[in-house]
Design a protein around this nucleic acid. Structure first.
Lengths: 224, 224
DNA sequence: CCCTGTGAACCCCTTCACAGCT
DNA sequence: AGCTGTGAAGGGGTTCACAGGG
């Protein structure tokens, strides 16, 4: 247990006030971490920004800038310590501990997400699931009993989930979001193709797959 | 049929050379169109930029700017013609006709995407599906016979798909992408958590759901 | 009066380029 | 010699604010 608190070599991680961090930087951090974990499994111990950036598909200066927002983690002679940096990023993202996630909606998409192994691998665990359909309520999906959304206020706080995933129907979505917010959820990943104004203090990230396809349609339309 | 060619009121759509259009603008256009279609079904005929922007969760000036990149579609007194504008955007995106999409990978995610009704509603049709698993090859999924990826060069060109969706395993992903490119695919939506350098003339859009979750983990970590 | 379309200002992210160090 | 971390320049997307018009 104690090893989790081992200091990261000579890295000088920033204190409690990381200045304004672009969201895109955060997304890239998670990408870096994923690659670092793979490198670690391959036995690679050190990596230079050029190589790591290449694997991530970004500019080397971008990578160094992203990291520099949180501290200095590299050595001039050896580059970055693969294991140490992956740990550090995990701590920055909050994924060094397993995080409980609430799932709303057990349709095709919801059940697919529920059984997707990639989430557990990256430290996310769907602890509670909800659905509105009386047909589904009470049944067990991948080991989780489905709760009715009406009982969210009673059930959800027990789990202390700060993250939720929406994969339900669009009707009453605002209400669901409000309830989640009241239950302590601070960040929501929304697969429902409808935009909901986020309550204060809550961040909603929309994943509009059809929208992405339409963007690609535009790109495939021109010839380039 | 002829009504498809009806001129859009007094809209002056730009010619063959729409100047540099930000990708984010394109994504938002698809969002505007989705909302416009909903408004049309509700019987709304005209809408002002303020209202449309509010529904989309963007700044009104942003909406007007996005549209202005392609022409002038609004009237000062009545705002935008809901039906006409949705048609115009559809034409700009290339979604005014059904588009054939190739799907690679028939795991949980692939099958979920295959049966997702939202795609057909927005004009996308999975015409061909591939998988590497001999277990799956030859079987029929949602009406499509699964082809082996090895036969892509023989099968795919018949369908003329310019868009592909990747929902397969990460092994040999580069090869799959190269093959798709050789078969005329110009745009790829990639759900596989691995970055592939796009061949010339091909655009790859990565959808990293775990990455999004990690971003949310960061946001849920701080208190805001 | 209040809308659209748009020049211009603003802001933020990306990239350059180099000082400092090994 | 070559790398990291970073000030400064650069570029691009967003927002402001207003001209023009019904």
């Amino acid at each position: 247990m104690g090893e989790l608190d081992a200091p990261d070599r000579d890295a000088r991680e920033d204190g409690p006030s990381p200045r304004r961090v672009p969201l895109q930087t955060v997304t890239r951090l998670s990408l870096y971490r994923k690659i670092l974990v793979e490198l670690h499994h391959e036995g690679v111990e050190h990596v230079f920004s050029h190589r790591l950036a290449e694997l991530a598909g970004v500019h080397p200066a971008q990578l160094r800038r992203d990291l520099s927002l949180f501290g200095s983690f590299g050595s001039v002679s050896r580059g970055y310590d693969v294991f140490s940096l992956s740990r550090t990023i995990g701590r920055l993202l909050g994924t060094d501990r397993v995080q409980v996630v609430a799932l709303v909606g057990l349709g095709n998409l919801g059940r697919t997400l529920l059984t997707y192994r990639g989430f557990e691998e990256r430290g996310f665990h769907f602890g509670v699931v909800f659905d509105r359909d009386p047909e589904k309520v009470g049944r067990v999906y991948a080991g989780r009993r489905c709760h009715p959304v009406e009982e969210m206020e009673r059930v959800l706080p027990e789990y202390g989930a700060r993250i939720a995933v929406l994969a339900c129907g669009p009707v009453g979505l605002e209400t669901v979001v409000e309830r989640l917010a009241r239950c302590g959820v601070r960040a929501i990943l929304n697969f429902v193709p409808r935009h909901v104004a986020p309550p204060p203090g809550v961040h909603i990230e929309d994943v509009d797959i059809s929208g992405k396809l339409e963007m690609l349609s535009f790109l495939a339309r021109e010839d380039r």
